[in-house]
């Protein structure tokens, strides 16, 4: 059991099956699907609330998605802690500034990577709310319910992602 928890990695099939079972519990115990991107809207709403309470409560989007700490927000907090725990148990937790692939192509400038990550994050946050879901909400939880919007969303995520990644690093299959 201990060796299992401290292993550096598990089979992707096992990890996927585990996420599948986690989705059963979300449906059964919380009457929800498992999605992460709503939490980012809630955080944005909390910041807006701190700046101007009156204005924020009148914004239509925060009436639709209230800026409160709930199951979905705690899910993302838990995700941070769970991953830290897993990495710590495998004895490999460390602070890292630049992913190896990025460094190989664009050099070791930490600020460049951070500027790129910020720009990518802004687009992703915008896109996730625009499409009303992300890789977990649409990509896994929605597709498994055979939702048409979710299958179209996940096709768009990967089609645009594959083209954009190819433009950045070159298309491996050309």
């Amino acid at each position: 059991m201990i060796e299992w928890l401290t292993a550096a990695s598990w089979s992707p099939y096992l990890v996927g099956a585990g996420i599948g079972v986690l989705i059963w519990t979300a449906f059964l115990l919380s009457d929800r699907h498992l999605g992460c991107s709503t939490a980012y809207s809630k955080t944005a709403g909390m910041i807006e609330l701190a700046i101007s309470r009156q204005k924020t409560v009148s914004m239509p989007y925060y009436r639709k998605i209230p800026a409160t700490i709930d199951w979905q927000w705690m899910l993302v907090v838990g995700t941070i802690i769970g991953s830290a725990l897993s990495e710590y148990l495998s004895g490999s937790w460390r602070v890292s500034m630049i992913p190896p692939l990025f460094e190989q192509s664009f050099g070791a400038d930490e600020h460049l990577r951070q500027a790129v990550a910020l720009a990518g994050g802004i687009l992703m946050g915008l896109g996730a709310r625009w499409a009303d879901g992300c890789t977990s909400g649409h990509g896994i939880s929605g597709t498994l319910q055979l939702s048409l919007a979710s299958w179209i969303a996940v096709i768009c995520f990967f089609a645009a992602g594959i083209i954009a990644a190819g433009l950045i690093y070159g298309f491996s299959f050309l």
Binding site: V116, A117, L123, M124, W130, A131, F157, A160, A164
Partner: peptide, 9 residues
Amino acid sequence: IFGVGFAIL
């Protein structure tokens, strides 16, 4: 939009 952000981030 999400997919482009996905590849950049």
